[in-house]
Design a protein around this nucleic acid. Structure first.
Lengths: 216, 216
DNA sequence: TAGATGTATATTGTATACAATTCTGGAACA
DNA sequence: TGTTCCAGAATTGTATACAATATACATCTA
């Protein structure tokens, strides 16, 4: 009994995940062109599965493909980042509203455990994943898998920029406090309080990120 | 001066659009497997561009690919349809709120023109497109292109089922009335009224579709 | 010299060929 | 009868080879 993911993973799928990971971690930077022959050779595969991977990543919004010119790592404008945060705001507050009444004690424990991980000293490189996981655990009881998948994609796109943030250190402490507050509200089943905390949390994160994007 | 779409369209892109269209129009039905060799031969292309097209469609949610088993046209459960309508509800009411203050006289005229088209006797086969176009015109002034693209994708997925609806005839008349009401509220710049009309409109559409899905 | 034009090179796009996997149907066996 | 197992047929996945297109640079023209 494994994770449920396909056991027989195709090369194209592996490559897609690897390239996505490289984009998220900043190994492949925004605007950087992707040379198929070069990357395929580096990975020891032919261009065919790489091209299929790129098509998928393009549909997910991580790269931009122009015919006969190739793929470049997608970049987000400040306006686009703001829009993504706006979408998060609408969808996540809704999910939280639905989720709180459905949360079990087990869910709340999972949130506590996640917070412990967030407080580990070596968390920074894994912050993106762990932070998403926190939000995911909160929204899972809402039973809205499509919305959740959509939000995961949005988080991934945003985290790429958050990861590089200078303000991360300060924004990080704030995020921890706000997460704590959210858990408390969830445990007390205070829906309006939790929602308004989440709203503030998302707005503050957006504000911090966008401010630091603008100074560049 | 053309539409801005790529002039040199690659075979893979053309195939992607064609297959998507066949899925939306029901020529390819939900659950139906797609045999690469067969479809490629029918279209007079090799399997390579077809496979790339399928990867893209999979990322967009129109087909489901299982390794070494192939692609099948995706089907939506009733629960998934409900979730998609829920997402529409949250995002479209938000866009409308933003859009109304920004609407120009030109936008309102475009809505009127669209209504004329909706009232043509031969509209049914084009209903999906024209209906989406109506909503798109309303939301465009909100200036949220990512959200709009996301909603377009959701509309497409839903319209595939709406198109086959028995209730279409009756739901159709209702939709026209509700569209008229929406335009009136937009013209009067009555944001809360318009939003609550839109909310009712989406809920009614969902109710009709889901009811008819359940009787099957 | 500025601009246009042609040609070589690099890169992407597609077809064909082959490898790997899954599916099918029937033989062997209890 | 029902089950297991094993060809081989069908289908998908990937590599190689070639075609189409774009880019860079040299050449020509005014």
């Amino acid at each position: 009994m494994d994770s449920g993911l396909p056991v027989k993973r195709t090369i194209a799928d592996q490559v897609a995940e690897l390239v996505r990971q490289r984009i998220l971690t900043g190994q492949l930077k925004g605007g950087q062109p992707i040379r198929q022959e070069h990357l395929a050779a580096e990975l020891g595969v032919s261009r065919i599965p790489l091209r299929e991977a790129l098509k998928q990543l393009a549909a997910e919004g991580f790269v931009t493909i122009t015919s006969h010119k190739g793929a470049v790592v997608a970049e987000l404008s400040i306006q686009e980042v703001e829009e993504l945060f706006d979408i998060r705001l609408r969808l996540e507050t809704w999910l939280l509203e639905l989720a709180i009444p459905a949360m079990t004690e087990r869910d709340l424990e999972a949130l506590d455990e996640n917070m412990e991980e967030q407080r580990r000293p070596d968390i920074l490189p894994r912050w993106g994943d762990v932070n998403w996981r926190f939000h995911e655990i909160m929204y899972l009881p809402a039973g809205r898998p499509i919305t959740l998948k959509l939000l995961k994609n949005i988080h991934d796109k945003i985290d790429r920029y958050l990861r590089l943030e200078v303000t991360m250190r300060s924004g990080f402490e704030r995020a921890l406090r706000e997460h704590d507050g959210l858990i408390a509200s969830c445990r007390a089943r205070e829906v309006p309080a939790a929602v308004s905390l989440l709203e503030r949390h998302i707005r503050e994160t957006a504000r911090g990120l966008i401010a630091s994007l603008k100074v560049q």
